[in-house]
Amino acid sequence: MGGARPKASIRDEAGVVWLAKFANHHDAFDIPAIECAALHLARLAGLTTPPARTVMLGDRRVMLIRRFDRYWAAPDATPAPDADLLVTGPGKGSAEHRKGFVSGLTLAGCNESESRTKSYADLAEAVRRHCHPAVIRKDTVELFKRMIFNIFVSNDDDHLRNHGFLWDPRLSGWRLSPLYDVLPRPSHASERFLHLGVGPQGRLATLDNALAAHERFTLSLAAACKLIDEVWRVVRQWRGHLTEAGVPATEQDKSAPAFRHIDDVSTSALRKLLP
């Protein structure tokens, strides 16, 4: 199982597979709690996220994320177009199926060494080339909002392996996977960068840079501004949402430098364009 942090696949009482992500002795803050809360925050901002929660294992917190590359259906059945593959669990006469999964590296047609030379707009182009026509519009909007969210929460681990695509048996085509591996990284730097390119100013993590690339996501200026506003209205209340997610105040304080105010990542001219 890939990634730098310890993890394991487990099954719950119903037989559903979850990915367990564990804390590390050297962590500067409660990473399972903050990562799980970040997914909660993203979901509130309108992004597609898998079910996730935390549990205590002794005195350590473990994050559980439901595997979104599995679904349950009759052994030889093709799921109905309106079937909810994410939440449907095992039942009488059903069998577990896997959905095909590829990373952004595969869809963008590059190797890992080229990841830092790619951008969110390159992923949007890959969506237009390879994803099912029914989901292209939704997925390019989602990519734009993920970029905005990552700017606000300083998630600079947004490399191409941390963007995924699933083969949807209902469509017989590819679509963007739910969001995963989002970890706000505390920093006191006034100028910050994402891993992937944001806009004409490269990887510079500002809203002005992101907005300047709106046409590459087939978004009008007004539509892009509306999406930025939707994300900001949620992220600006991050402390309240992290409290709801069960993150202790001490851990919120440790991660606070990751969460950016809109005034720090945009010009006044951009803010005047928001709804």
Rank of each mutant, 00 (worst) to 15 (best):
M1Q: 11
G3F: 10
A4H: 10
R5D: 08
A8Y: 09
R11P: 02
R11L: 13
E13N: 06
A14K: 11
G15F: 06
V16N: 14
A23L: 07
H26C: 04
D27K: 05
D30M: 01
D30Y: 10
A33R: 04
I34R: 03
C36F: 06
A42C: 07
A45W: 04
G46L: 00
L47C: 03
A52L: 08
T54D: 06
L57H: 03
L57I: 10
G58P: 07
D59R: 10
V62E: 02
V62D: 03
I65G: 02
R66H: 12
R70I: 00
Y71H: 00
W72K: 00
T78Y: 09
D82N: 12
L85D: 13
K92D: 15
G93F: 12
R98N: 02
R98K: 07
V102I: 15
S103Q: 10
L105H: 10
T106K: 08
A108P: 14
A108K: 02
N111C: 12
S115V: 04
K118L: 15
A121H: 04
E125S: 13
E125D: 11
A126Q: 02
V127C: 09
R129Q: 00
H130N: 09
H130T: 10
H132P: 15
D139F: 13
V141Q: 12
L143F: 09
F144T: 11
R146F: 02
M147K: 01
F149Y: 06
F149S: 03
N150E: 08
I151G: 08
I151A: 12
I151E: 12
F152Q: 00
S154T: 11
N155T: 02
D156M: 11
D156N: 14
D157P: 07
L160G: 00
R161M: 01
G164C: 01
F165V: 05
F165N: 06
F165M: 12
D168A: 07
P169V: 06
W174V: 01
R175Y: 10
L176I: 06
S177I: 06
P178H: 08
L179T: 15
Y180G: 05
F193P: 13
H195D: 11
L196V: 14
G197L: 04
V198D: 08
P200N: 08
Q201P: 11
Q201E: 13
G202D: 02
R203D: 12
R203I: 10
L204E: 07
A210V: 01
H214G: 01
T218S: 11
T218I: 13
T218C: 10
S220M: 05
A223W: 14
C225R: 12
K226H: 15
L227P: 00
E230T: 05
E230S: 00
E230K: 01
E230G: 01
W232N: 12
R233K: 01
V235K: 03
Q237R: 10
T243G: 08
E244Y: 05
E244M: 08
A245G: 15
P248D: 13
E251N: 01
Q252W: 09
D253F: 12
K254A: 13
A258Y: 04
A258W: 00
R260G: 02
I262N: 01
I262C: 04
D264E: 13
A269G: 09
R271H: 03
L274P: 06
P275Y: 14
